[in-house]
């Protein structure tokens, strides 16, 4: 039993979602990846909590350390984060809801008129890897649509991205609409993107500005989601 948990952890660190995944090494193709191993573990009646606590969580912690030490790079983080996301999907039905600790629902979007999504995608991946349940609405999303999704999902966090000076104004529009809908107090609004600043965040009434995902997470750590 310990063996398979070790294998899950190893493959998580290698960032191999499934059999087809190369890892950094083509030799790994064909060998079971995280999803196959998690299924196998469940079949072998290993408690889901053990899979989570003895394989997935310590694996991801190790990935974090490797990244901090410069051994791992962004794509490695992403690969492991994907493994976690897939494994969680498989494990979800086994938990009554509480046990997989989500840090809350996080809706994220690039605002209307703006097609830049590279930064937003990175941020959503890292948020996901650090325990948020992320719903990414894509690019060019209208304020109205963002607000209605926040309402529908009762998300505790909203991330807005804008890379153009001409689209930054839609961030304020979104915040104003949240107020109109009476939703402003239930969601932490977090903004980012090259032309955006701390000052701008204050000006438009956002809760925080994230220079990058890590900065945002640090700041989020200090705030408790009002909705959750």
């Amino acid at each position: 039993m310990a063996d398979i948990l070790g294998e899950i952890k190893k493959n998580l660190i290698a960032g191999r979602v499934d059999r087809e995944d190369e890892g950094f090494d083509e030799d790994m193709v064909g060998q079971p990846g995280v999803t196959e191993l998690v299924r196998q573990a469940l079949e072998e009646n290993i408690p889901p909590a053990d899979i989570l606590n003895e394989a997935l969580t310590p694996g991801m912690e190790e990935v974090g350390v490797l990244f901090e030490e410069g051994e791992y790079m962004v794509p490695d983080m992403l690969a492991s984060a994907e493994c976690i996301a897939e494994a969680t999907k498989i494990l979800e039905p086994y938990f009554s809801g509480q046990e997989i600790q989500s840090r809350g629902k996080f809706v994220i979007a690039t605002v209307e008129g703006d097609l830049h999504d590279v930064g937003k995608n990175i941020v959503s991946t890292i948020l996901q890897a650090s325990g948020f349940e992320v719903q990414d609405l894509g690019t060019c999303v209208k304020a109205d649509d963002i607000v209605s999704i926040v309402k529908e999902t009762k998300a505790g966090f909203l991330g807005l991205s804008a890379l153009l000076t001409s689209t930054m104004t839609h961030m304020k529009e979104t915040i104003d609409k949240l107020k109109e809908e009476g939703l402003r107090d239930q969601v932490v609004v977090c903004i980012g993107g090259a032309p955006v600043s701390e000052e701008f965040a204050q000006k438009i009434g956002a809760d925080l500005y994230g220079e990058d995902a890590f900065d945002a997470i640090n700041k989020l750590d200090k705030i408790n989601a009002p909705g959750n």
Partner: peptide, 16 residues
């Protein structure tokens, strides 16, 4: 669905 994560993942070997 998400081309950027595909490209990112594919880049691991080249980076090394």
């Amino acid at each position: 669905a998400k081309s950027s994560s595909k490209f990112l993942k594919d880049s691991r070997k080249g980076l090394r």
